[in-house]
Computed example of a mutant assay.
Amino acid sequence: MSFIQRGLILGLFLLSGSSFASTACSNFFLAGTPPTVEASMTSRTTEVCHTEYVILDSGVTKGPLYSAQDLTAAQVAGSETISRTGSFHQETGIPAADRSQDSDYTNSGYDRGHMTPAGDESTIASEKESFSMGNVVPQEHKLNTGEWEKIEQQVRQLATNLGSVYVVTGPAFSDSSIPTIGKDGVAVPDYTWKAVYEPGIGAAAYVCTNDDNETCMVVSIDAITTLSGIDPFPALSSTLKANPISLPLPATAK
């Protein structure tokens, strides 16, 4: 079964149209428009606005459906002046019944994989916010500390070069039998993805299999929407969504 064919099997959610979520933090989204999410995925969702990113979390998966940023060169410059000091904590902006706990990951075999990375945050306070349990998914350690971290670095370099980029990051599930971890049943994704819009140029998305093979590639926005059920940039034209720009991949990525 091919990479994209697997992505068509959205067993966790039945595809039944899409929905624009309301938002209290439009500044993080391209044209102020939040991602569209398959309507059946919007049950028990909560938006939480932080200083430099926003999450839409699901009480079904007990994690983010997406995390979004307007990543600027100034923010990246600020991030280079601070040290990593955060520790993982509960996301109090999410109803208690819909949260994951730090303990869900203990001895699970998975890392707490940031969607918006701590390395993007420009102040100590905003870096601490990135350690919200609402901003992480179960991620294979080799991926999290390998190709995924390199992709995060590549995106920061793009923001530095271009002045700013819009970024939406999330998980994708491709099997009707979704593994979970912890007493709260945190869903383990098959993929993690990061969509990038370069202003005035176009968009594409990185997508990686959530395993120790570290298989990563660059695909179109249409492909990531098919894979995840989420359109990260609904304000873009159909032409831009169908035609991915070239994004730099780590040399070892497949």
Rank of each mutant, 00 (worst) to 15 (best):
V219Q: 13
A24Q: 02
Q101W: 09
T61D: 12
K142C: 07
S16G: 03
S79A: 15
K150G: 04
T85N: 08
V167H: 11
P250A: 11
C49R: 06
G134S: 01
A118D: 08
T123R: 04
G63H: 09
F29W: 07
P199H: 09
E140G: 08
G7W: 13
V165N: 03
T180L: 09
I82H: 03
L8M: 09
V136A: 06
T36L: 06
Y105D: 06
V37F: 02
S237C: 12
M217Q: 15
V155N: 00
G185A: 10
N243K: 10
T226E: 12
P171L: 05
T225P: 02
E52D: 09
A118W: 11
Y66N: 13
H50Q: 11
T33L: 14
L249D: 01
P34Y: 00
T33M: 04
D70M: 02
T192N: 13
Y66M: 08
P179I: 06
I230Q: 09
N144D: 02
C208L: 12
K254L: 08
S103W: 04
I4N: 01
L65P: 05
M133K: 04
W193D: 03
P232D: 13
T51E: 07
T23F: 06
V54A: 03
G202S: 08
V218A: 14
D104M: 09
P117L: 10
P199R: 11
M115L: 15
K194M: 10
T36R: 08
S100T: 14
I151F: 13
P189T: 02
A204G: 03
K183T: 15
F88C: 07
G134W: 00
S108F: 07
S67I: 08
F173Y: 15
P138Q: 00
V207A: 04
R6L: 04
A204D: 02
D212P: 05
V186C: 07
E121S: 03
Q154P: 03
S58Y: 02
Y197Q: 03
T239G: 10
T239H: 05
G119Y: 06
A31S: 15
G17T: 10
A204K: 09
I224K: 12
K241M: 12
R99M: 08
I201E: 04
P244R: 15
N210T: 07
N213D: 10
P117S: 15
F20S: 12
T215M: 14
K241A: 09
T123Y: 00
T33E: 10
V37T: 01
M217F: 11
L30I: 04
A74H: 03
K183M: 01
Q75K: 14
L143K: 08
L247Y: 06
E91L: 11
S87R: 00
K150V: 01
I201K: 08
T46R: 02
F29G: 01
N213T: 14
I245R: 04
P138M: 11
S18V: 14
Y105C: 07
S164N: 08
Y110D: 01
T215A: 07
